[in-house]
Every structure is written in structure tokens, then in C-alpha cells.
Design a protein around this nucleic acid. Structure first.
Length: 627
DNA sequence: GCAAGGTC
């Protein structure tokens, strides 16, 4: 018996083959430039159900095909509205990879799918079956096996090979639905908007596109911008108090925070001053141990957020650096939502790979020696059922040929990994509460007693307070050295950083770990938003603000009078995700979800065509207000 | 020339 195994990407094919073959295999390179990543690896393996088999392990590279419209529906050849129910066709993306599957399947008796264990992976499995069936009629969805694995640990992979299941037809249906809806709604609205705005935009401007992910992403940017623009400062008043003990001054903050009424604040102040002109009473002294937890195992989104914060890298640059590090074998697969390491994974062995480093080798050694500093990382709540958290594989020495950005990202991945295998940082949190007249004031201090993971995770700061609190006792009378009413005012929200935008998209389910960076990049390249340097606070940061076009688009869409749902808010995408989940669970049919969603977009499209001038007007107004 | 999702 000859079995063809197909993984979602070459790296998985290689490591699965390495495990199953026990090192005894032959590799045939796929011919052609476009196939330089695909390899066919031959070996034998003992399957309980089929006995000793010849195995060919190969891979695709993500999706094999893409959905599109036939030529007669190409841009300019039909009314955009026709795309809501135009026929669709399936096109092969990379013929070399697709043909390789067809050829290899020709000589095989069975097909076993080794794609990632997620929704898209099931669909890619179906695409592989299609390619395999072209010259081998025995290859069908029903006869194909599917290996279920969520990481590449040896025993797990062997178990997956020995206990295959079938492809999940419902998940395949769900992905089909997503693809079709994204294409129909995206192409239709994009053609309409580009046509409409072509009347007012300069020649050579980028097209005006709509996409179910790009618009909510733009919506987040505009939303923050508007909140800042609409912000009105409000003055407030507060009572500041300080007492002195043994030359030590202790500044306290009012428990009420601040009041928006000056007169009331002054009355309270004067009343207290009358009651206790010179001193206050300590009503609470407290010192408690506190911890600053070591970080969770690393996901893509966290990596992008951190690299934005610490190194001012864009999400796209971070991911692209991580991809290079991955293909060079320095770090694990960089697109993952999983924040828990599999129990069986030997993390100490990975730490050991870092001991030769001149920068962090000593720390890595200290984790492994007898002091017992190594900690099993915390377990998070997320899993994509496909990849482990991002971690270093081998040490990239100083001489490794990497760009400076790649070096930065690599160092970050290593330090983060070592940090999550480290003890928490520990400290003592102390607080003092005093009562002055009718009012209560408090001060807090921190003494860090053990740096823990912060030794290696140098990007995070957690430091002892600059001045320690004076030693006082309960009920002690302390002498006031300062009491006064001070005025302040509310501050507008801060401008949106890319790190915050990633967090918003992640929390609202806009895009995936692999695509969030692309969506942000898209709204930049469409000239909906621009990056702006500001020096808010101490450090220079880069923030995202909408252009007149971006602002006008969101405003225009909001004015259309869409009653059921907004196209610039995240809810529609989240609703689609929910419905796709229902398809996976068999609660609704693909047909129903298609019909419901398309009817919603038809309504939006009708409103847009009826109010074209309104859409353009919002853009023109945005320009006028800016002048 | 459109989308979003995989991946190199």
C-alpha cells in the first residue's frame, strides 16, 4: 500500500516525515522555480490499519486555489450589483504545487491530510483532495484520511498518524461561505466606491476599496480621532496633603480623587482646616507581598504589540522578520494564537540551546543549574489547535546573517521565552491612609525584593518607589506640612498607537493572527490613514490618524442610515464569525448564511447608490474642516 | 485593478 500524506506547509511535512520515518527517508525536490519550497519525501511507516506502507510526504503552501468571477464579470464589464449573485469560479494559485499533488496521487492508494487543525486547514484539505482526484478517481472526500495534531512532539505525531479521522465537511462549508461572501461584498463595494470617488480624487490615487476587515479597522482609527476632536476640557479641583516625619515628606492623594465643583471642594477644605488645623491621624498602615507575574507563552498578536511598544516596529515588519527567522530555523512557527506549551514539550532543552549566547547565556545557565530557577510557564486560555507558542529553536549567534530588525525580534523572542520560564518578580506593597477632618488620604509605595523574570525581560520596568514611605503607626498623629486646594483638568484620550489598534482588532475578532498586520497595512496603502510622529509624554511615538478620505468614508457610511448594522463597526464581522461557527456545528446551512448576509449588503448597496452625493459630501466636508 | 484567508 502506498499512502500520500500532504501537509499545509513544507516545514510541517519535513518534521512529520522526520518523526515517522525515523530518519530513514529519501527526498525528491519538486521541479520548477515555483515549487522550490515543496519536497516529496519517501519512507515507510507501520500503520495499525494498513500495515507496513510506502509513504510519500509532501505539502502545499497554504490555499491551493482561490475564488474569483468569470471573465464576463470582470471590472467594468458588469454592474457591481451583479456580483451579489454572479457565478464564481475556482482558480489554481500555484500550478507547480497543485500539479505535484495530482502527479503524486496518481501512484497512491490512500490520501492522508496533514493540514493545520483549524477551519482553514479543513478547507485546504478539501482543496488537496480535489487536486488528488484529477488523475486518481479513488481519491475522494469520503476516502481521504485526516491526521489530527496540534503540535509536533514525537509521540503526538505518531498517535495522529495511527488514529486518523475524516475531514470535517461542515468546516469546509463554513470556509466556502466566508470566501464567497468576502469576494462578493468586497468586489461589489470596491468597484462602486472606486467609481464614485474617482470623480473627486486626483488621478493616480489608490483605489477606494471596501473589505469586511479593512473597514472596521479604519473605523477604530476614526473613532479614536473623533473622540479626541470632540473632547472638551473640564476643570476639576482636589485637595493635596503632605505630612512630615523625621525629615521625610509624604505626599498623599485624596480618596475622592477630584471634584468638578470648586466651591464644594473649598468648603470641604475649610471645614477640615477648622477641625484639624495642624495634624492628621493615621488610620491604616499596611505592607503586603505582591507579585509581578512572568509573561505568558508568546502569541503572534502579543509579539506584534510588544515589538510595536518596545522597538517601534510595525506589525507587518515584526511578522516579516519573524517569518525569516522561522524559515532560517531560528524560531518556531510565528503565526499562533496558542499561549500554553504542550505538557510533553521539553522546555529545558530549548533553554539549554541558549547557554552559549554571550548576551543571555549566563541567564539561561542560571535557569538550568541547581538553584532551581526554572519554572514551568503559566498556561493561558487560548489555543488555535495548530501551533505551539512562539519560541526559539536554536541559538542565532552574533555572526548569523540577520538584519538588525531580525536580530531585534530574535532577541525579543528569546528573552520572552526565557522570561516565561522564570520566577515571578516579587515585592512589598505598602500603603498609608490618614484621616484629616472628614476626609481620607492615601499614599502607596513599592519595594521590589526579587527581580525574577525582569532580569532577562529588560523591556519591562517594575521598580521600587523613588522614596520609601515613612514609618508610622496606627492612630499616630502626624504633622501636616502642606494642605491646599489645587486645580487640574481632564485630559483628552491619547492618539491611537498601532499597538492599541492591534489589541482592538484582536479583541473584536477583526482578522486573524496572520492577517491583522495586512489589514493595517492595507488601510495605509489605500490612503485611509497615515502614521504621525508625536512626542506625547516622554518618548516619541508613532500614532495612526485618519486622512480626509478615511474620515470622510466612515462619516459618509455612518450617515447612510443603515438601520440594521454598521459597516464601519466590528459587529458585522463578529456576527459572520458566529454564523460560520453555527455552520460548523450544523445549526445553520451555508445557503441561509449566504442569503442573510447578501440581503444585508444589498440593502447597504441600494442606500449607497441612492445617496452618492452624501458619501462624497462627507469627504468634501472633511477637507474643508482641515483647511 | 476588487476581499480575506492560507503560505514562501
Amino acid at each position: 500500500m502506498h499512502i500520500l500524506c500532504v501537509a499545509e506547509k513544507p516545514s510541517i511535512a519535513s518534521s512529520v516525515a522526520r518523526t515517522l520515518s525515523g530518519g530513514n527517508s529519501r527526498t525528491r525536490q519538486v521541479k520548477g522555480k515555483a515549487g522550490r519550497f515543496a519536497r516529496n519525501i519517501d519512507f515507510t511507516f507501520d500503520f495499525p490499519e494498513f500495515g507496513r506502507c510506502d509513504v510519500t510526504m509532501t505539502s502545499v503552501a497554504g490555499h491551493v486555489t482561490n475564488i474569483d468571477f468569470p471573465d464576463q464579470y470582470s471590472w467594468g464589464h458588469c454592474n457591481p450589483e451583479a456580483l451579489f449573485d454572479a457565478p464564481t469560479i475556482i482558480k489554481v494559485g500555484n500550478p507547480v504545487i497543485a500539479d505535484n499533488i495530482t502527479k503524486e496521487a496518481q501512484n497512491c492508494d490512500l490520501l492522508m491530510i496533514w493540514t493545520d487543525c483549524d477551519r482553514e486547514g479543513e478547507y485546504i484539505g478539501w482543496e488537496i483532495v480535489q487536486q488528488a482526484s484529477i488523475r486518481n478517481r479513488g481519491m475522494t472526500l469520503e476516502s481521504a484520511y485526516r491526521a489530527r495534531f496540534s503540535h509536533l512532539e514525537r509521540s503526538h505525531v505518531i498517535y495522529a498518524a495511527k488514529h486518523p479521522v475524516r475531514l470535517d465537511k461542515k468546516a469546509i462549508e463554513a470556509v466556502k461561505t466566508r470566501m464567497e461572501l468576502d469576494l462578493r461584498t468586497g468586489a461589489c463595494l470596491t468597484r462602486f466606491l472606486t467609481g464614485l470617488f474617482g470623480r473627486v480624487l486626483d488621478k493616480g490615487s489608490p483605489m477606494v476599496s471596501y473589505g469586511g476587515c479593512q473597514f472596521p479597522t479604519l473605523g477604530f482609527v476614526v473613532d479614536r480621532y473623533k473622540r479626541i476632536k470632540m473632547f472638551k476640557k473640564e476643570p476639576f479641583w482636589q485637595i493635596s496633603l503632605a505630612f512630615k516625619k523625621k525629615q521625610k515628606q509624604c505626599l498623599m492623594t485624596w480618596e475622592r480623587g477630584h471634584l468638578f465643583d470648586r466651591l464644594v471642594t473649598v468648603c470641604i477644605y475649610q471645614n477640615c482646616l477648622k477641625l484639624e488645623p495642624e495634624s492628621a491621624t493615621v488610620i491604616g498602615v499596611d505592607t503586603k507581598p505582591t507579585s509581578n507575574w512572568a509573561p505568558l507563552p508568546l502569541t503572534t498578536v502579543e509579539m506584534q504589540k510588544d515589538c510595536g511598544r518596545f522597538f517601534k516596529l510595525t506589525a507587518k515588519d515584526t511578522l516579516s522578520a519573524a517569518e525569516t527567522l522561522y524559515t532560517k530555523g531560528f524560531i518556531s512557527y510565528p503565526r499562533t494564537e496558542t499561549d500554553t506549551f504542550p505538557k510533553a514539550m521539553d522546555l529545558r532543552k530549548l533553554v539549554e540551546k541558549q547557554v552559549e549566547s554571550s548576551k543571555w547565556g549566563a541567564y539561561a545557565r542560571s535557569l538550568l543549574d541547581d538553584t532551581g530557577n526554572f519554572r514551568q510557564p503559566r498556561t493561558g486560555k487560548h489555543s488555535d489547535e495548530a501551533h505551539p507558542p512562539i519560541h526559539p529553536i536554536i541559538l542565532a549567534g552574533e555572526q548569523a546573517s540577520l538584519t538588525s530588525v531580525q536580530k531585534t525580534v530574535y532577541e525579543y523572542v528569546v528573552r520572552r521565552f526565557l522570561a516565561c520560564c522564570s520566577p515571578d518578580a516579587k515585592g512589598l506593597k505598602s500603603s498609608i491612609r490618614v484621616k484629616w477632618g472628614t476626609e481620607v488620604f492615601r499614599a502607596a509605595g513599592l519595594v521590589v525584593t526579587s527581580n525574577g523574570y525582569l532580569e532577562i525581560f529588560i523591556y519591562s520596568k517594575w521598580k521600587s518607589s523613588r522614596t520609601s514611605l515613612p514609618e508610622v503607626e496606627l492612630n499616630e498623629r502626624v504633622k501636616l506640612c502642606k494642605v491646599l486646594v489645587t486645580e487640574g483638568s481632564t485630559e483628552p484620550p491619547k492618539k491611537l498607537t498601532e499597538t492599541e489598534l492591534i489589541a482592538l482588532m484582536d479583541a473584536n475578532g477583526i482578522g486573524t493572527d496572520a492577517t491583522i498586520a495586512e489589514h493595517i497595512d492595507k488601510i495605509k496603502s489605500r490612503n485611509y490613514v497615515i502614521m504621525q510622529k508625536t512626542s506625547e509624554g516622554r518618548s516619541k511615538t508613532s500614532v495612526i490618524v485618519p486622512t480626509e478620505l478615511g474620515y470622510g468614508l466612515v462619516e459618509g457610511f455612518n450617515r447612510l442610515g443603515l438601520i440594521k448594522i454598521s459597516l464601519t463597526k466590528p459587529f458585522l464581522r463578529r456576527m459572520l464569525e458566529t454564523k460560520l461557527k453555527y455552520i460548523c456545528e450544523g445549526q445553520v446551512s451555508r445557503k441561509d448564511v449566504l442569503a442573510e448576509t447578501i440581503s444585508l449588503y444589498r440593502e447597504a448597496y441600494t442606500l449607497m447608490t441612492r445617496q452618492q452625493s452624501l458619501l462624497l459630501q462627507s469627504y468634501k466636508e472633511a477637507i474643508r474642516t482641515n483647511d
